[in-house]
Structure formats: C-alpha cells, structure tokens
C-alpha cells in the first residue's frame, strides 16, 4: 500500500456517501466563485478608473479560474460524464448553492467593495485551512486560490479603509452598503448538513473556528476605516440550500442563454 493512499484516498476509494458530500460541497464552492466572478465581470469597462477596472477584472478572472477547477473536480466526483460547463450552464437556480451575498447586485462601487470584503475575509480564512485538507484535490485547488484570495482581501480591505476614511460621501455610501449587505454575511458561516458532516470527518474546517478570525479582521479594518461594526443584525440565509434571492434567476438567464438556446453545441 503506498503512502499516498493512506494520506489521501483517491476519488474512487471514497465511500459513496463521502463522495456525495464532497460533490455537494465542491459544487457549492464552485457556484459561489462563479456567481461572484460573474458579478464582478459586469464591471468590466465601467469601473471608476481604468486602473481599478483592471483590478476588478483580475479578481473576476481568479474567481472564474477557481470555479473551473472546482467544477472539474465536481464532475469527476459525480462520475456521470458531465463537464464543467454542464454543471455551470445546465443547472437550475434551485440547484445552485452559493450564499445569498455573492448574488447581490453590484450597486455602486461601495456596495461592490463591501460585498467583496465580506466574502474575501471568509474565502481567505477558509482557503487557508482548506489547503491542509486530507482531500488532495481540494487542498491543491485551495492552495492556488489562497494566494489569489490573499490579494483580493488586501485589495478590498484597503478600499474599505479608503472609502470609510475618505470623504463624507464615500463614508455615507459605504455605510449604506453595510446597512444593505451586512445581513448576508452570517450565512457564509452557517454550516449546512453537508458542511457539518465534512467538518466532522476532518475534511473541511469547522466554520466556528473561522468566524472569530473573520470578525477580528473586519473589526480591525472597520476601526481603521472609522466605521462601526453592526451589532445584532438578523441574518438572511437560504442560498446555500437553494433558496435564492430574486437576483439569481436573472444572472443565470444571462449566463446560460446560449447553452439553453442551442442545446448540446460546442462553442
């Protein structure tokens, strides 16, 4: 028996139950980075200044790259011969598992920055741990994405500080974004059944360990940005179990248009 296998079973060695859990989870991660990447890509050509247009496109590209690796892995776990594009383009909104936060509209730049910041913090601390997952594929995908997410978090944190401690207008806009988006931050850390079981199996981190790290980072950045961290906000949830906001349907309508209009063709 080779050492590789004792450390990390190959996909075919997983029990069907574990495989199903991993598939569910990998899809959830993929959906999340796809939808956020899609949202960010809507900025392309419309950013507040050329240099930031490039920055947002870069982040969107990182997220779409991560999406592809995750869907490819999901397709393997599923083992039904579906491709990354089948998974992205031919699933219905209820099958999508992304948290509500990432499907929220871009709004103004403050909304985009805040949405990104809330997500980046979660993404960063999750990937940091996930790099050490005994599942080698997830670990490898996470290791690559972690480098990218480190940059994303730096970028969005600095922008939160600039906008919070910038002009009166930028502060007011950012505060409005916080009022609108904070209620979606909780869902990032609420664990689904799948996540709980995978955490118990030691394959993914327990999100309860991520939350304090995230909170500490948010508190630090908000303090520098002269912003208050909201307290006692009722948190929205549902995206991770397929109950989305009205926005997702429109995203998928656009995203899936050609694949739906011309089924089964190569592009």
């Amino acid at each position: 028996m080779d050492l590789q296998h004792t450390q990390s079973p190959a996909v075919q060695d997983y029990t069907p139950e574990l495989r199903a859990l991993l598939l569910d989870y990998t899809l959830q991660l993929a959906d999340t980075s796809l939808i956020l990447g899609h949202r960010l890509s809507e900025w392309c050509g419309h950013g507040p200044i050329l240099e930031q247009d490039l920055a947002m496109a870069n982040i969107a590209l990182d997220l779409i790259g991560e999406t592809r690796s995750l869907y490819q892995y999901a397709a393997e776990l599923e083992g039904k011969g579906r491709s990354e594009d089948d998974l992205a383009y031919l699933r219905e909104a209820v099958e999508y598992k992304n948290p509500l936060l990432v499907e929220q509209p871009n709004g103004d730049f403050a909304h985009t920055i805040l949405r990104q910041f809330l997500f980046d913090g979660f993404h960063f601390f999750l990937l940091k741990d996930l790099q050490n997952s005994p599942d080698q594929r997830l670990a490898a995908i996470a290791a690559k994405a972690f480098k990218e997410a480190s940059y994303h978090l730096k970028w969005s944190s600095e922008w939160v500080i600039r906008l919070g401690d910038g002009t009166e207008e930028s502060k007011r806009r950012l505060q409005k974004a916080i009022a609108n988006l904070w209620m979606f931050s909780g869902e990032l850390f609420m664990m689904t059944d799948t996540e709980q079981q995978l955490a118990q199996a030691g394959i993914i981190p327990d999100y309860a360990t991520l939350l304090p790290q995230w909170e500490a980072h948010v508190a630090k950045v908000f303090a520098e940005a002269t912003l208050e961290v909201p307290q006692n906000v009722f948190m929205q949830k549902g995206g991770k179990t397929g109950r989305h906001s009205e926005h997702l349907g429109y995203i998928l309508t656009e995203l899936q248009y050609l694949q739906r209009a011309y089924p089964g063709l190569e592009w």
Partner: peptide
C-alpha cells in the same frame, strides 16, 4: 462610468 466614479476617485485622494 467616469461620472459615477468621481466620488471614488475623490475619496481615494482624500484618504
């Protein structure tokens, strides 16, 4: 894009 970005550019400079 330029006009809607004005407050962003101003905020960054102010900061």
């Amino acid at each position: 894009a330029h006009e809607e970005g004005a407050w962003v550019r101003e905020a960054a400079l102010a900061h």
